[in-house]
Design a protein around this nucleic acid. Structure first.
Lengths: 209, 209
DNA sequence: GTATCAATGCGAGACGTCTCGTCTTTCATC
DNA sequence: GATGAAAGACGAGACGTCTCGCATTGATAC
């Protein structure tokens, strides 16, 4: 039984110091040159304390990012997703915020690192997707569902596909650096997607589909 | 002058063996655990032969992928992009092929590894994008341009955005593993995008889709 | 034409260095 | 007196350089 140390005795102080150090360091040196030794040194903890509680540096960073997105939620007062009744405006607002996050080095570095690590490590990728990504996608989907209920979107809309059509192209441009990110870009994206799925501003409209 | 070995004396046999070994190994152990020593051993070449011609293991893998996509072009007889006059069908065809490639382990592993490595290593990422990605995106863009010229798409269509709307969501689902890939998925994607940009099959069409 | 020879890439692997993850020791806390 | 934590010693393994013969090449001499 080499496993499972007693979690109740765990030092919260050390935990936080480790997560903070990981976030800082990944921004300074990048993911590839991020070492557990450096995290331990910066956090003022022994290496073993990290190895005791996390299986890999990727896992540390995942926890760190989770706490980071937790903070963001509290700061921004994000209980959910804006719902002004104007779907187009709401989507543009959220995507603009996402663009801003991608452009914020503090957020960009760890997220990029995790995305990359998750792409090649199926285990980590699954946790990354389930714990960080899916909850966000679910917010989009919920907002879209209210639009369906309001008759602004066809009842048979593939919401999952629609969410990925909103998030996918932006994420693609960000990850691959094929072009600079801009608010105008996501605004145009929203317009094309909404038109593509048959969005109607107010009344049920007689046309198409 | 320690630089510039004589390229005319280079062993083509060794070059191919190295690229093949790199592709095989990256599928077996993943990018992170891929070592130049292992590539050399598998290829039956000396380490120095790799270090003489490539600056890093990432560069080896990039060359290997380039040769792989080169093969794919020859096999499929891809001189360009299908152009049957039916834009929707052509896009669906190409995206279905892309789905098949993503599902092919031989292609998936190295591409995934490179994408991930490129995401965190800006240098490599730039070369990856320029040499592998952009040429493919350019094929899409060219096909779309002929559609514009044929009056099937509005003259002011943002082709770049449109290409990313086609490729982005698929790549996203592939990388993040948020859902299984399927032909039906990309078919639906094409339909929404085309409707969103105002695609008309033949004549200017009056109806709302 | 063929024999010789210097130049250069190649396969093999030894070498010193670096960083990894584990193990050991000592102290603090419950 | 257990157990976690800080510090660092330790072996493992990959790095990139190097040194060796061997094979191939192109130039020169006969």
């Amino acid at each position: 039984m080499s496993k499972s140390p007693d979690a109740t005795r765990r030092s919260e102080r050390s935990r936080r110091a480790i997560l903070d150090a990981a976030l800082t360091l990944v921004g300074e040196v990048g993911y590839n040159k991020l070492t557990i030794e450096a995290i331990a040194a910066r956090a003022g903890v022994g290496k073993q304390t990290i190895y005791r509680w996390w299986p890999s540096k990727a896992a540390v960073l995942l926890d760190a990012s989770l706490s980071l997105s937790g903070e963001a939620v509290e700061e921004g007062g994000w209980t959910g997703f804006p719902d002004t009744g104007d779907l187009a405006a709401d989507l543009k607002t959220v995507l603009r915020i996402t663009v801003d996050q991608f452009l914020d080095e503090r957020y960009d570095a760890p997220t990029r690192a995790l995305t990359a690590a998750g792409a090649t490590d199926p285990d980590l990728g699954t946790r990354f997707t389930e714990q960080l990504l899916e909850p966000q996608l679910a917010l989009y989907e919920a907002r879209l569902r209210t639009a369906v209920d309001a008759g602004q979107l066809p009842a048979d809309t593939d919401l999952r596909l629609m969410v990925e059509m909103l998030v996918g192209p932006l994420t693609y441009r960000w990850l691959m650096r094929t072009a600079p990110l801009a608010h105008a870009h996501t605004d145009a994206l929203v317009d094309v997607v909404l038109r593509g799925v048959g969005y109607v501003t107010t009344r049920p409209a007689a046309a198409g589909a």
